[in-house]
Simulated assay, not measured.
Amino acid sequence: MPESKKRRKVVDREATKARTSSKKVEKVDQHSPRWYAPLMVTLAIIGLIIVVTAYVTNGGYPFPFFSNGNYNLFIGIGLMLIGFLMTMGWK
């Protein structure tokens, strides 16, 4: 007793759904490590503290050896940028 073409299509479609649904389950289980979020927030906060300190002290602190120019601001903004970019990889 041969199967009809419609029945074969339905069986093939169900088999395809079963294969694709198992792939989706594997992707859902991926999470960031436990240390990722605290590091991300810490970098952003330290960067903010460095920028505020540099503005209040006219660029003299928190790193006095970088007092010529705006290097303290660059360091602070760089740390905040790294913290922000880490948010894109957080799951």
Score class of each variant (00 low, 15 high):
residue 84 F to M: 02
residue 11 V to M: 09
residue 80 M to C: 00
residue 35 W to A: 07
residue 75 I to P: 02
residue 67 S to A: 15
residue 45 I to L: 15
residue 35 W to L: 09
residue 2 P to C: 03
residue 60 G to P: 01
residue 83 G to N: 03
residue 25 V to A: 14
residue 86 M to L: 12
residue 22 S to Y: 02
residue 8 R to H: 05
residue 11 V to G: 01
residue 30 Q to G: 00
residue 87 T to V: 04
residue 72 N to H: 06
residue 17 K to D: 05
residue 11 V to A: 11
residue 64 P to G: 04
residue 83 G to Q: 05
residue 14 E to A: 07
residue 55 Y to N: 15
residue 43 L to R: 11
residue 22 S to V: 14
residue 60 G to Y: 05
residue 46 I to D: 06
residue 2 P to Q: 08
residue 50 I to S: 06
residue 81 L to S: 09
residue 67 S to T: 06
residue 72 N to Y: 05
residue 59 G to W: 04
residue 26 E to P: 00
residue 74 F to R: 00
residue 58 N to V: 08
residue 48 L to K: 01
residue 61 Y to S: 10
residue 17 K to M: 10
residue 41 V to S: 00
residue 65 F to T: 14
residue 29 D to F: 02
residue 53 T to E: 13
residue 69 G to H: 09
residue 80 M to G: 06
residue 21 S to D: 10
residue 36 Y to F: 14
residue 33 P to M: 02
residue 20 T to R: 10
residue 73 L to W: 15
residue 21 S to F: 07
residue 65 F to Q: 12
residue 40 M to Y: 02
residue 79 L to T: 01
residue 17 K to S: 07
residue 53 T to N: 15
residue 30 Q to H: 10
residue 46 I to A: 15
residue 46 I to M: 10
residue 6 K to E: 15
residue 70 N to K: 05
residue 76 G to Q: 07
residue 14 E to I: 12
residue 84 F to C: 00
residue 22 S to K: 14
residue 16 T to K: 14
residue 66 F to W: 11
residue 61 Y to V: 11
residue 43 L to T: 02
residue 18 A to E: 12
residue 52 V to H: 09
residue 14 E to M: 13
residue 40 M to F: 05
residue 7 R to F: 03
residue 49 I to K: 10
residue 87 T to E: 00
residue 77 I to S: 09
residue 50 I to M: 13
residue 79 L to Y: 03
residue 63 F to D: 08
residue 18 A to T: 09
residue 23 K to E: 08
residue 38 P to V: 12
residue 86 M to F: 04
residue 7 R to N: 07
residue 6 K to Q: 14
residue 17 K to C: 03
residue 6 K to T: 11
residue 45 I to A: 15
residue 59 G to L: 03
residue 27 K to A: 07
residue 50 I to N: 08
residue 64 P to T: 08
residue 35 W to D: 02
residue 59 G to K: 04
residue 38 P to W: 11
residue 63 F to K: 09
residue 32 S to W: 01
residue 13 R to F: 14
residue 26 E to F: 03
residue 79 L to I: 07
residue 36 Y to G: 04
residue 33 P to R: 07
residue 1 M to Y: 08
residue 62 P to S: 09
residue 62 P to L: 06
residue 76 G to F: 10
residue 51 V to F: 15
residue 57 T to D: 07
residue 89 G to R: 07
residue 36 Y to P: 04
residue 37 A to Q: 10
residue 6 K to F: 10
residue 42 T to L: 15
residue 15 A to K: 05
residue 67 S to D: 14
residue 80 M to N: 00
residue 65 F to Y: 08
residue 68 N to P: 01
residue 30 Q to F: 08
residue 31 H to I: 04
residue 64 P to V: 09
residue 5 K to V: 12
residue 49 I to V: 14
residue 1 M to E: 13
residue 89 G to E: 02
residue 61 Y to N: 14
residue 19 R to E: 13
residue 64 P to N: 09
residue 44 A to M: 13
residue 16 T to G: 00
residue 16 T to Y: 06
residue 2 P to Y: 01
residue 45 I to D: 10
residue 16 T to I: 10
residue 69 G to I: 00
residue 68 N to R: 04
residue 21 S to R: 11
residue 72 N to Q: 10
residue 36 Y to D: 05
residue 23 K to I: 10
residue 5 K to I: 14
residue 19 R to Y: 12
residue 61 Y to C: 02
residue 48 L to D: 05
residue 23 K to C: 01
residue 39 L to V: 12
residue 87 T to L: 04
residue 13 R to T: 12
residue 84 F to T: 02
residue 52 V to T: 12
residue 41 V to M: 11
residue 3 E to D: 13
